[in-house]
Nucleic acid binder design. Sequence first.
DNA 1: GTGAAAGCGCTAACAG
DNA 2: CTGTTAGCGCTTTCAC
Lengths: 345, 345
Amino acid sequence: MTVKDIAKKAGVSASTVSAVLNNRQIERRISPSSVEKVLAAARSLGYVPNIAARRLRDQPSGNRQVVIGILTSYEAPVRLVSQTLHALEQRISQADPQGTTYSVIIEIFHAGRLRDLPGFIDGRRFNGAIITNTVAEDDNFLATARLPFPVVLVGRSIPGYPGVNGSPQALGAEAARILESAGRQRLAVLCPRVLTQATERRLSGFFEAAIRQTGSLPDKIVSPNLSASGGCEAMREYLKRGGQCDGLFVVTDALALGAYHSIKRVGRRIPDDIAVVGVGDQENGPFLDPPLTSFSSGQEAMNQQVAAMLISMLSGETVSPYSLDVPLEIRLRESTGHSSRVPGE
Amino acid sequence: MTVKDIAKKAGVSASTVSAVLNNRQIERRISPSSVEKVLAAARSLGYVPNIAARRLRDQPSGNRQVVIGILTSYEAPVRLVSQTLHALEQRISQADPQGTTYSVIIEIFHAGRLRDLPGFIDGRRFNGAIITNTVAEDDNFLATARLPFPVVLVGRSIPGYPGVNGSPQALGAEAARILESAGRQRLAVLCPRVLTQATERRLSGFFEAAIRQTGSLPDKIVSPNLSASGGCEAMREYLKRGGQCDGLFVVTDALALGAYHSIKRVGRRIPDDIAVVGVGDQENGPFLDPPLTSFSSGQEAMNQQVAAMLISMLSGETVSPYSLDVPLEIRLRESTGHSSRVPGE
DNA sequence: GTGAAAGCGCTAACAG
DNA sequence: CTGTTAGCGCTTTCAC
């Protein structure tokens, strides 16, 4: 299954095989009969060229080839990855490009099984990585692993790793404050069963502030997953059980969409009966009915930071492991009784 | 910037450098002073290991290493990629795994500039690829290119390439039929400015059927992009200009969300004044207010097909270039006057 | 027209 | 404790 094998089978030399396989038969004046033999042999052997060998062979000598991985979990929404990639590419084109060729590859792992990603621990795949959407298990693994390449984390912090966060604790606290200033006393939170570190911290910030403000523990409504239907189901169950919250904090966009549905279905009004605060990009929030008060997840700023950090680490600059928080941004909209303008209007 | 350079600078041999860089200093009993020297040299030279060389060196001999690329454009929603990846992994684990190691990498290109993706045309990156979300320019390029590896297309067909489609023409026609059977006579379509092949065909199917049914040309409402705010803006303009449609076909989910907003804003009711039919996965449709009648985009089935095709091509089976359509699925909901059940209820 | 040989960068086996 | 050597699979001279 190498050029040599084909060469042997076709009764020609490896270089002939290579030429044929790369369509250089005319320049190299390979005889039609040889071409035929090679092609036939390649097909019958199920030949697949070895990419690593090709890349090794063909790189402009004296040129650093840097491979960057963006690692994210299956279970999380992938839509943010393209933002990260974009930020990275921007950085790359800014960074001194001469003498270095960057390539970025995206890898998706199963939440909790980052360690099983092939070629990860042994540095056989990347020269550096941006890691995002991990869950506790992955974080534990990372905390003890000694990775042979630089890594920057997004949305979590682990001792020893540089990372960028979206001020999750402050976000949760601010959510509680907004609900309280809308006059809400019976708070609740809607979150998925499996929590990322960022979600956990949002919750803890929310709980702390809520207890301080209202003197009582908010209800915790747990969705089986991150989808709209999960949020719908969880909220429906909660209301059916007689849940009485008048202020709801929802940790992601999609969950909010589902929750809206269930709330309206039982005849409660947003924000009159239940005020809602969400978290998410600006994509959908303004278009929910009523428009959803929500925090920007700070993705854009985080991506910029993360890209800059990784590139400079790869350029040999010793970025001492540090953590960085991007500032909060909140959009107050009708779901908490505020009025808003809709993009595109 | 190679181990040799480091070796020279540190005054040791390449193998010593390699050992140190791979944390084998104990097994190999490298003296602390050498370790220091190597580390210092590596740092000062900004050494980054060459991944291709490592992979070439370390592969289990006699093992085919197959690299599969999933190529999608920046501008398109990436959320579907993880589905494709999932289907591919499933196939891979089913396929005879002995003797072959697969790795899948995701590449994102700028719509219209697929040809500029580094290592694409010269087969320096993949042994096979799944390509999706191309626009006309990419399709033209593909039509004339002679790629040195097998390719399967999703959501478009180009002569000479195997591909899987979601019956876009039939989808458009069916959308028109649904609107007509809901008693609508003044039809319109909301679509982005830049059309993929699939979108184009959906439109052409819709227009044909609509003209046949109503005898008049549907209005075409053009959004600058694929986002909710684009849909909102386009729809608002249309209504402001005095647009009078009573049946609307929207080619993607997010656009529908924006359109809903503008329609409700001017006081028109869905479906009473305007019935709406959309296209999209089942994620958001049921949770819009009112729930949106929409087609499944057939992604799941398409992904299964596409994964199977590519793997068998890579296994040497000559899948004669062919195109395949996955069947339509429609969910009738309140936005066309039907009643529906919501997942999670 | 074709084959032999060299070498991309890396690491492991083997000899000191 | 360390250096020399070989070879992963490929393509490109260069020589016949």
